[in-house]
């Protein structure tokens, strides 16, 4: 077998493209996480509602996203939505909508899991003092649940960052798409995709270190 000659230089020459891609990945992920948390709160509230209709909608929403692949959501929002609504989203918007709606379902489960892990006695201790359900949730349940939610929340957010690479299929210039371009220009897929993996790894590693600090802070409090 012929010795392969590594040449990262050829790939690194296109660093502005990679930087652009990194920015694209961060933008999609940050927006999807932000909207996903808001949506997740709503879905979780529905899922735990006392009203059967709301509970059913919440459950159906979560089950839908749990049982369909992410790439179908991307294609549906980008190619199918315009057919029925006359709304033509750009690749970034479509990717954010697809990712945020999907992550809403997963964040909702993180929230619900955290809240339901708090024993019933805490609700009783709070309501026996005359607290409203809302106050009990705000003062007693959520502060305790939050600590337990950090780890699964971080896990979910990582999934979002990784899933954002699906935006490449919509020809949006995130990290993977930019890499594909560079690979086809340089004919160096080995270096390009190795480098890409390294960049994803570094990005998530930094984020997980930050999350760890946050988690420790919360445990101390």
């Amino acid at each position: 077998m012929q010795q392969y000659e590594w040449d990262f230089g050829a790939v690194l020459a296109y660093w502005p493209m990679l930087l652009h891609g990194l920015w694209g990945t961060v933008a999609i992920s940050a927006l999807a996480i932000l909207f996903g948390i808001v949506g997740g709160g709503l879905v979780a509230a529905m899922r735990m509602s006392r009203h059967v209709a709301l509970r059913t909608i919440g459950t159906a929403y979560i089950e839908f996203y749990r049982n369909t692949p992410g790439i179908v959501h991307f294609f549906w929002v980008y190619y199918a939505l315009p057919v029925i609504t006359n709304v033509k989203l750009g690749p970034l918007e479509a990717a954010v909508v697809a990712l945020a709606t999907q992550s809403s379902a997963f964040y909702a489960e993180v929230l619900r899991g955290g809240i339901q892990s708090i024993v019933r006695g805490q609700w009783e201790g709070a309501t026996a003092l005359g607290m409203s359900r809302a106050d009990a949730l705000r003062r007693i349940i959520v502060p305790q649940a939050a600590r337990r939610m950090v780890a699964p929340f971080v896990e979910r957010s990582f999934e979002i960052v990784k899933t954002s690479s699906l935006a490449s299929t919509l020809a949006y210039g995130e990290l993977l798409y930019q890499g594909m371009q560079i690979a086809s220009i340089t004919y160096r897929p080995l270096e390009t995709y190795s480098l890409l993996a390294l960049i994803y790894f570094a990005l998530l590693y930094v984020l997980s270190s930050l999350a760890k600090i946050l988690e420790d802070r919360l445990q101390e409090a």
Binding site: G121, Q122, E124, G125, A128, I140, Q144, A221
Partner: peptide
């Protein structure tokens, strides 16, 4: 309550 139900935080 029997189990106190104090707020641990």
């Amino acid at each position: 309550f029997q189990q106190f139900n104090l707020f641990p935080h």
